[in-house]
């Protein structure tokens, strides 16, 4: 009996904080998303599905609902850019992680230190680094202009590509670490065995290394994708405000746009997308555990 009470009191603060500051606010968001929004911020306690229909439709001057692509475009852009970012991160991370795993022990430690170091640096500063590189007359632009690769009026900032560069830059370490961990666990004798049996390198990579690293690859993919879906800084600083993503669309609803219930419904939507990916991964890992 005494042991149980130690357990109870030890976990109580964590449960209290999480239920009051995490679960309760999420329930409120869910509730607000079904309410009518108040023009002055806040909401009126009248049930309505208006905030959800606003994602797809807009009312024209006759009060007929017309399909509105404005928000659907933002959602599609968010999904596309996040997916593309995760794919680019994967294509770069795998060779890098493999390269690190082939180094001597001291070199490995040093390179991993270099990979994790940016995490300790403020995200705003890291995105600012991208702004500085891509800015008008910045290093990259003057370089490209010197070689005549871009015209005089082209700008590298404020477009989808700039946002993607920023997202890859901020989130790529999240992809390298799990892939590196899974490569380190790999039994290298399998690679030698494959080569002894006259498998070429590409074939070994495809049929031995990649399948065995799949858990790390999937984990890294989810780790990059989830924060990308809700990212705020890159669209604001590198996208220039015109090209929005779901994250800063939500933020605007609680800021300048003052439409809380629409913001809440977008938040619920984002949460559903993220949960879908997390459930997919949980399903995969539980299946793997059953196999082993």
């Amino acid at each position: 009996m005494k042991k149980l009470s130690w357990n109870f009191w030890g976990l109580l603060p964590a449960y209290l904080v999480m239920s009051l500051l995490m679960v309760l606010p999420l329930l409120i968001i869910f509730y607000v998303s079904f309410m009518t929004s108040d023009a002055y911020g806040g909401y009126k306690a009248i049930f309505s599905l208006q905030s959800y229909s606003q994602i797809f439709y807009t009312a024209d001057w006759d009060d007929n609902l017309v399909l509105n692509f404005q928000y659907l475009k933002i959602i599609a852009r968010t999904l596309f850019l996040s997916g593309a970012t995760a794919v680019i991160c994967l294509l770069v991370s795998f060779p890098v992680a493999y390269y690190i795993s082939r180094q001597s022990n001291n070199m490995k430690t040093f390179l991993l230190y270099l990979v994790t170091l940016p995490f300790w640096v403020s995200m705003v500063v890291r995105v600012y680094a991208c702004v500085l590189i891509l800015s008008n007359d910045g290093v990259l632009e003057s370089g490209l202009r010197f070689f005549g690769l871009i015209g005089d009026i082209d700008s590298l900032l404020y477009n989808n590509a700039a946002m993607m560069v920023g997202m890859v830059y901020t989130y790529i370490p999240l992809m390298i670490l799990p892939i590196y961990a899974s490569i380190e666990k790999l039994d290298t004798r399998l690679i030698e065995a494959a080569s002894d049996l006259y498998s070429c390198r590409m074939n070994t990579l495809r049929s031995i290394i990649l399948p065995l690293c799949k858990p790390g690859i999937v984990a890294g993919f989810i780790l990059v994708l989830v924060p990308c879906l809700g990212t705020v800084l890159e669209p604001m600083l590198l996208g220039g405000g015109k090209t929005m993503m779901l994250g800063n669309l939500i933020q605007n609803q609680f800021g300048v746009a003052r439409n809380w219930s629409f913001g809440a419904s977008l938040t619920v939507l984002l949460l559903c997308i993220v949960l879908l990916f997390l459930m997919f991964q949980a399903h995969r890992t539980s299946k793997l555990r059953e196999l082993s």
Binding site: P25, L26, I29, G230, G247, I250, Q251, G263, V274, L278
Partner: peptide, 16 residues
């Protein structure tokens, strides 16, 4: 907190 995108937590706690 590791499972939620931060913006979700941020607006939720703002309303709270």
């Amino acid at each position: 907190p590791l499972m939620l995108p931060e913006i979700v937590f941020a607006v939720a706690i703002l309303i709270l």
